[in-house]
Write a protein that binds this DNA or RNA. Structure first.
Length: 468
RNA sequence: GGGUCCGUAGGGUAGCUUGGUCGAUCCUUUGGGCUUUGGGAGCCUGAGACUCCGGUUCAAAUCCGGGCGGACCCA
């Protein structure tokens, strides 16, 4: 494990050409080419999953103050961190315009116009946009930013409560598949009432445990009930001719998914990227001497073509530097598989493959099975990456029945599971006493279990942790 | 929300306490050349910095105030 995660994370972002945080505005950074590619492949995956029954749209960045202010709870949740546009050139605007902190209040007035009949439902739109939040706590690249550059937000409206509840389940399945594709482990919980999305009935969240033991919220799903429907007057005429309010949900993931991929899989040598998001899945490193240069290079090209024809992303590092330097570079950048090819290998008709996860070198014959062998190694690499990440999570969720033990367990880098009665007052007290945040309800409690803090019977198995 | 600390080439640093010797140290990075190439090579020769604004002073990287940026702690 990485010793000082915070420092490691900060350094790797720049060393591996992910982001540059030196842009002179706090909490805003540049996506550099290598990081941008990782982000692109991450987005392709979520879009692929959503496009099965959602449609992508794009709303304007600016939200009029009157709309943003309509939903009381919602405004309260965001008013401290909204950026405002107040001028057009030298003139004051007659209405302040907010840079969206999230898009409910931009989208729902339009839903009110679009939805007339039950035939229009359900409506399932999503967009990928940047959102702005004036974070007052210290910012951290990709994790706590003032411009969330990659915010995938889905917004659905349904005729019945049952349908909207089903939609929550669907989102959970989609996010599971999404995160599974990167081998990112997650803890799913229902957020406590005081940590519910402003305006929502309840919030389901995906948290990942980072190497330092802090949890990172990487996905949220909100059941909005009819709150926003009533505020924005989103009604439809049902089969029976009655006008009814819709039931709504929304769900988001962001840049933080990239942060979790980097943080969770990385090691002291650098990144270890899941093949699905790795800009290069195979990197070929030619070992060149003056003699036999052309032969080696042309064989490398040939291998590259074969692998590319099989759908893999491949690069050849033909820089005029020593091979050792290239090995270190690509280990830093987390390319899953390196293929080393020199004159000696050419004679033996082999290439030496090295996996980024365990560093093991194996000889692969340069025959017709090359492509299959490479794919096989990538699959094994992918499985191992995922498995060790899930093992890490399992080892770092500790159950206790002793409230006094909670803080120590968390300090030692764990997330703590505990039995809880579910009472608000009780929950607040647990947070106060331990100094940490209840993530939420993870599961039902076992029969006969007692709440860790009150005398009540426990209803739930809940999670508490140090959070980002 | 309250507090502590920090800001010197692209990155990491020395110098700051006690202002002058700074024409600013070292490592890394980087341009050119030679030589090398199976795990970060070597040599030669170049390039590159005192966060910004104001103040004190004969003199500011160094002292003072503020802005911007960053790290951490507490609630």
């Amino acid at each position: 494990m990485v010793e000082n995660f915070s420092e490691w994370f900060h350094d790797i972002l720049e060393e591996a050409n992910i982001t540059d945080s030196r842009y002179p505005i706090k909490g805003m950074a540049i996506w550099m080419p290598y990081g941008f590619k990782i982000r692109k492949y991450m987005l392709e995956k979520i879009k692929e999953l959503l496009d099965k029954d959602h449609e992508e749209v794009l709303f304007p960045l600016l939200v009029p103050e009157t709309e943003l202010a309509k939903e009381g709870e919602h405004v309260k949740g965001f008013e401290e961190e909204v950026y405002w546009v107040t001028k057009g050139g030298k003139n004051d605007l007659n209405e302040k315009l907010a840079l969206r902190p999230t898009s409910e209040t931009a989208i729902y007035p339009m839903y009110a116009l679009w939805i007339r009949s039950h035939i229009d439902l359900p409506i399932k739109y999503y967009q990928v946009v940047n959102t702005f939040r004036y974070e007052t706590k210290h910012t951290r690249p990709l994790i706590r930013v003032r411009e969330i550059t990659t915010f995938k937000e889905a917004h659905t409206a349904h005729a019945t409560k049952e349908e909207s509840d089903k939609q929550i389940e669907d989102f959970i399945e989609i996010y599971k598949e999404f995160l599974d594709s990167f081998g990112i482990p997650y803890l799913i919980s229902k957020r406590p009432i005081w940590d519910t999305f402003p305006g929502a009935d309840y919030t389901m969240a995906f948290d990942a445990i980072m190497p330092d033991g802090k949890t990172l919220q990487i996905g949220t799903i909100h059941n909005l009930g009819q709150t926003f429907a009533k505020t924005f007057d989103i009604t439809f005429e049902d089969k029976d001719g009655e006008h009814k309010y819709v039931y709504q949900t929304c769900a988001g993931v962001s840049d933080r998914v990239v942060a979790s991929i980097i943080g969770i899989h990385g090691d002291e040598k650098g990144l270890r990227l899941p093949p699905i998001v790795s800009p290069n899945q195979v990197t070929i490193i030619p070992i060149l001497f003056k003699k036999g240069k052309e032969e080696v290079m042309s064989k490398c090209e040939e291998i590259k073509n074969d692998l590319e024809n099989a759908g893999l992303r491949v690069n050849i590092d033909d820089r005029d530097i020593r091979p050792g330097k290239k090995f270190y570079d690509w280990e830093l950048k987390g390319t899953p598989l390196k293929l080393e090819l020199g004159p000696r290998d050419l004679e033996n008709n082999i290439t030496i493959a090295m996996r980024r996860d365990d560093g093991e070198k194996v000889e692969i014959s340069l025959d017709d099975n090359l492509v299959d062998n490479v794919k096989d190694l990538l699959d094994k690499y992918n499985e191992n990456l995922s498995k060790s990440a899930w093992d890490f999570q399992e080892e770092h969720v500790k159950f206790t029945e002793n409230l006094d033990e909670v803080a120590d367990l968390i300090e030692a880098g764990n997330v703590v599971a505990f039995n809880w009665c579910g009472g608000d007052e009780c929950g607040k007290q647990i947070e106060e006493k331990t100094g940490y945040d209840i993530l939420g309800i993870h599961d039902d409690a076992e029969k006969g279990a007692k709440c860790i803090a009150s005398d009540e019977d426990a209803k739930y198995l809940a999670l508490i942790a140090k959070t980002y």
